[in-house]
């Protein structure tokens, strides 16, 4: 792979919904193999950014490249993990059937048993620590377990880029920590670039290479200490912001405008 080509490249990207500017002049590049956390408040455009990367939305202006190609042509190179999967408890799928959809679920026809698919699924289940419940009904697993299945489904097709949309939102602290640790380990072992959207920077600090902070339609990318400080965030938010460090945790307090 040519190291000169970024995994994700946004060049002057605007995105408007009606009159509202969700993203303005967003310019940044993510290098292959990087783990980048995308942080921002509600409506800051975090999910929009992922949808633009997948080509499900088109930018109002500017250009987006994923491994040098337009986003529309990237099927198979991107794995996507939604905020949560809502499975009906009675859906007749085992955990492994759910994960197997990530291998060839987009292809037409009926899946016939295949040793290759089975070994891919087994490897993905093992990577996310889901082997113990691989043959249980998927709909009856806990939220954290289902989240692991969603990650397994996203990585089983050997993507080069993994996008996670608020995977921690419905999890308690220890389950969230487990998901981040698992994601980071898989990304390292399989050489996958990761964009992970989250509300809170803290669960990600130990694992991510850089942070992409979104506020007011603007984006700033850099190491955690370069971005999550009072100067940078105050500039981004257009108002005074305090960054407190309490017992190793980072707390961002935005003042009045």
């Amino acid at each position: 792979m040519n190291a000169a080509i970024p995994a994700v490249d946004f060049a002057g990207v605007d995105f408007k919904r009606g009159e509202r500017t969700i993203l303005g002049r967003a310019t940044f590049a993510v290098e292959p193999g990087e783990f980048v956390g995308i942080i921002g408040g509600n409506g800051a455009g975090k999910s929009t950014l992922l949808q633009l990367t997948m080509g499900l939305l088109a930018p109002s202006r500017g250009e987006i490249r994923v491994f040098g190609a337009p986003p529309r042509a990237t099927h198979g190179t991107i794995g996507y993990v939604p905020q949560r999967i809502e499975l009906d408890p009675d859906v007749p799928l085992r955990a492994r059937d759910f994960v197997a959809l990530g291998v060839d679920g987009a292809k037409f026809g009926i899946p016939f048993p295949s040793a290759r698919r089975r070994s891919l699924v087994d490897a993905a289940l093992a990577d996310v620590g889901a082997t113990p419940f691989a043959d249980k009904p998927a709909g009856r697993l806990s939220g954290g377990e289902q989240q692991r299945l969603a990650i397994a489904q996203a990585i089983v097709g050997r993507p080069k880029l993994l996008l996670l949309d608020e995977p921690l939102a419905n999890l308690d602290l220890s389950a969230a920590a487990g998901i981040v640790e698992t994601t980071a380990r898989i990304a390292r072992e399989r050489g996958i670039t990761v964009l992970l959207v989250a509300h809170d920077v803290n669960p990600l600090v130990r694992y991510m290479d850089r942070v992409l902070y979104l506020a007011n339609g603007r984006a700033a990318i850099g190491a955690v200490d370069e971005i999550v400080n009072e100067d940078t965030l105050s500039r981004l938010y257009d108002r005074p912001v305090d960054v407190l460090r309490v017992r190793g945790r980072i707390i961002v307090v935005a003042g009045d405008a």
């Binding site: 997948m54 499900l56 794995g79 499975l87 679920g105 987009a106 026809g109 969603a150 996203a154």
Partner: peptide
């Protein structure tokens, strides 16, 4: 149904992931 079975199952249980996979 046989032709669309696999993507249909994918879209049924994981709509967003299926869409991102090009379904």
């Amino acid at each position: 149904l046989a032709v669309i079975a696999r993507p249909l199952l994918f879209a049924t249980v994981a709509r967003d992931a299926a869409r991102s996979a090009g379904v």
